[in-house]
Amino acid sequence: MGKGVCGAVMPVWMGALFSLVALTSLVAVPAARAEGEITARYLAAQGREIVLEIQVGTPAPGSLIVIQRTPRGSSLQKAVPLPKQSGRGEIKWLIRQPSPGTLTLRTTFAEPLSPGAVSAVIRCKDPLTGKMLTIKVP
């Protein structure tokens, strides 16, 4: 009788296991698409050279606006890539069709910037929802 009981119980959990596998196979979907996320940080936020690194997720937005705020009176000497506008304490980039991955914006100033003197705002449309996103750095 004990053998019989074991024989009857074992298939229950086996059945449950098989059912779990079957359910998993039913709900399984192709590899999850990564969110179209944008993150950013300053690799260098003081001194003469300021480096802003932006991570562009997949799918990438159609375009990105980056506005870097600097102390009024700071003199921009060089910027890569070239901004659309600079002056009055703001440097503006409009980056068309950014590729997923890392995007680096480098700016060089005539005089060193003190810590905390620089900040940035990134604006784009969420490629999945079309909602306007605003990312503040730091």
Partner: peptide
């Protein structure tokens, strides 16, 4: 009779799997 029960219990999920694949 007992020896058939495990087989039956084992067959149910297999049939379920086949149906699942068919639906896929």
């Amino acid at each position: 009779r007992q020896s058939f029960r495990p087989l039956l219990w084992g067959l149910i999920p297999i049939v379920f799997l086949i149906v699942a694949w068919f639906l896929r």
